[in-house]
Design a protein around this nucleic acid. Structure first.
Length: 278
DNA sequence: ACCCAGGTGGCTT
DNA sequence: AAGCCACATGGG
């Protein structure tokens, strides 16, 4: 039996696992009792808890450096929240509400496929779709049973090749709907051209438009200036700031002016705050 | 039976 | 450039 790693990180600030795992940026973590979360990042399964500023990670892979980076622990979120509120005071309440949100540094390919699936979809179903995809096209993670919520095997996120070689009809059988073709085409392009590293390149992928590209930039490629505008953010910007529901350009310009390179954080605090009270 | 969900591609003005 | 609308699926 393979031994799982135990990693402890002390003095962790501005982190709440519920805020971070359930704010809509990731789809593979589930509550595992007593505030802990079980799930996976790429091909690594883990069981994670946080108590008195000590983050405890039991994982099948990844060293401390990997998980520090995953949780973005070297970024000062207290400073970010203060700067956001200084630029636009009305965001302060949202920052307080989601005070333990951190923007995870997720695997780019996983982020690409996950957010292609997210389009015109809702979060519970996105999670189911991704779980199905991992079970069929991912690999069982060795040693994951003792870390999962129910003792079951955790599957890795599929490799690019596995999805590039998939049959569209088989993807459709997983209830991925019309996104099945997008998934295969994007996996093929990723395999052929390598990892995209900018917005323009992402927009060249079949099934990736402006909104999904911004999510991938923010959650997968560390571009914290990216400000994804989805149906919720449209409502927020309409309610809070009076933008027309279709004035996406105006919303983007507002975010760039008020928040600049911190716009992505602002978007996430607003999204979580607003979506949670409905 | 409708409308909606972390929208996009394609076709028509 | 801007305005429609089909696209799968499941929940309210």
């Amino acid at each position: 039996m393979k031994k799982t790693k135990l990693i402890r990180i002390n003095d962790v600030k501005d982190l709440d696992l519920t805020h971070t795992f359930e704010c809509g940026q990731c789809f593979r973590w589930v509550p595992a009792g007593n505030g802990a979360y079980a799930g996976a990042a790429g091909d690594k399964a883990a069981l994670i808890s946080l108590e008195d500023g000590t983050l405890t990670i039991m994982a099948t892979g990844g060293d401390e450096e990997f998980w520090r980076n995953y949780f973005d622990l070297d970024t000062d979120y207290g400073e970010i929240k203060a700067a956001l509120a200084a630029g636009e005071p009305r965001i302060a309440e949202a920052c307080r509400y989601g005070s333990g949100i951190r923007i995870l540094n997720q695997d780019p390919f996983e982020t690409i496929i996950s957010f292609i699936i997210s389009q015109n979809n809702n979060i519970p179903r996105i999670r189911k779709n991704i779980e199905s995809l991992c079970r069929k096209y991912g690999s069982p993670v060795e040693g994951s049973e003792e870390l999962s919520r129910d003792g079951g095997t955790v599957y890795s996120f599929p490799a690019p090749r596995a999805l590039a070689e998939a049959e569209v009809s088989d993807l459709a059988d997983l209830k991925l709907g019309y996104r099945s073709g997008y998934i295969k085409a994007s996996a093929e392009q990723y395999l052929r051209e390598g990892c995209p590293d900018c917005r323009e390149e992402l927009l060249g992928f079949h099934g990736i438009g402006p909104k999904v590209a911004n999510c991938i930039m923010l959650f997968g490629l560390r571009d914290t200036a990216a400000f994804p505008v989805d149906t919720w953010v449209k409502h927020i910007m309409n309610d809070m700031y009076g933008f027309g529901m279709n004035d996406v350009r105006g919303m983007q310009a507002f975010a760039a002016e008020k928040f600049g390179p911190l716009a992505g954080y602002a978007q996430q605090y607003l999204f979580y705050y607003y979506r949670d009270r409905k």
